[in-house]
């Protein structure tokens, strides 16, 4: 069979078979080696977080990938393929200049100040006059967590990366990772009892925050999130009813402890 085994004869059949077999084995081996080589290169902390986000974004459903311009009513049924990074999107600048017709702006009784930028992982970013960025949890995020049992914030001097781990919080035995909305170095930390969670010195002098939601997009996003939340906290088998226009309670886990909070946190904080 093989040239180094007794009884081997060079024939066309042998050469063809060995060549095909050799190519197949070589492709399998090269594929594995390339993957391992790339893994070694990409496993550094910052890069690994970027890969985690790519992998998690890849698994999002179409509904979860709704484009910001769809949320703002500028286009219909558009999904994001750029990992929510509008800085890489060629269509974003064109759509951003479109004015949506008859868009009813509301944040449904929740507090979403318009001087801030919003990340879909329930965080906000505010530019400070000294060039730093303040990061906090949105009103919906606060109500979802209520009073967390434990919060693990990064240390001062640590770097955070957009869509990577910002900090973690746990409530009722369920831990959730909160995504950082921007790249930067942590210069101060707050917490649940503070106005903010992180104060960050951006890695660039004038950071581009075009990947974060603003204006009408925030309204559409909050509406979609509230609809999603309704489905998630509904006990299985209960009858359908529509929200009556009230305002969300401040501590949702306390108000509805029987809900599957592991699932709710996973979907609402984009931490599958």
């Amino acid at each position: 069979m093989f040239p180094f085994v007794d009884g081997f004869h060079w024939t066309f059949g042998h050469v063809l078979f060995l060549s095909i077999f050799g190519i197949v084995l070589a492709v399998i081996a090269v594929t594995l080696l390339v993957s391992l080589r790339r893994t070694a290169r990409e496993s550094k902390p910052g890069k690994a977080e970027a890969v985690r986000w790519k992998s998690e974004f890849h698994d999002l459903t179409d509904d979860e990938r709704r484009c910001r311009h769809d949320l703002a009513g500028r286009v219909d049924h558009r999904h994001c393929h750029n990992e929510f990074d509008c800085r890489q999107c060629e269509t974003h600048p064109k759509l951003a200049s479109v004015t949506a017709a008859e868009f009813d702006f509301s944040t449904y009784g929740l507090d979403y100040p318009m001087d801030r930028f919003y990340h879909r992982g329930q965080t906000w970013v505010k530019r400070e006059s000294d060039g730093t960025l303040t990061v906090g949890l949105t009103d919906l995020g606060k109500r979802l967590l209520g009073q967390p049992d434990r919060v693990n914030l990064p240390n001062t001097g640590d770097k955070v990366f957009a869509n990577g781990r910002g900090w973690t919080a746990s409530r009722g035995g369920v831990e959730v990772r909160i995504l950082a909305p921007v790249d930067g170095e942590v210069i101060a930390t707050g917490g649940p009892d503070s106005e903010f969670y992180l104060r960050v010195k951006p890695l660039e002098t004038n950071p581009n925050l075009a990947h974060l939601l603003r204006g009408q997009e925030v309204s559409g996003w909050v509406r979609a999130q509230l609809e999603q939340l309704q489905i998630l906290v509904t006990p299985a088998g209960s009858t359908a009813s529509l929200a009556d226009g009230g305002v969300l309670m401040e501590d949702l886990p306390k108000a509805q402890p029987e809900a599957n909070w592991d699932k709710v946190y996973g979907e609402m904080f984009m931490a599958p």
Binding site: D244, G246, E250
Partner: peptide, 11 residues
Amino acid sequence: GNVEVNDVPVR
């Protein structure tokens, strides 16, 4: 999708 929509607790 199988779960029917119900109220989110409100105050």
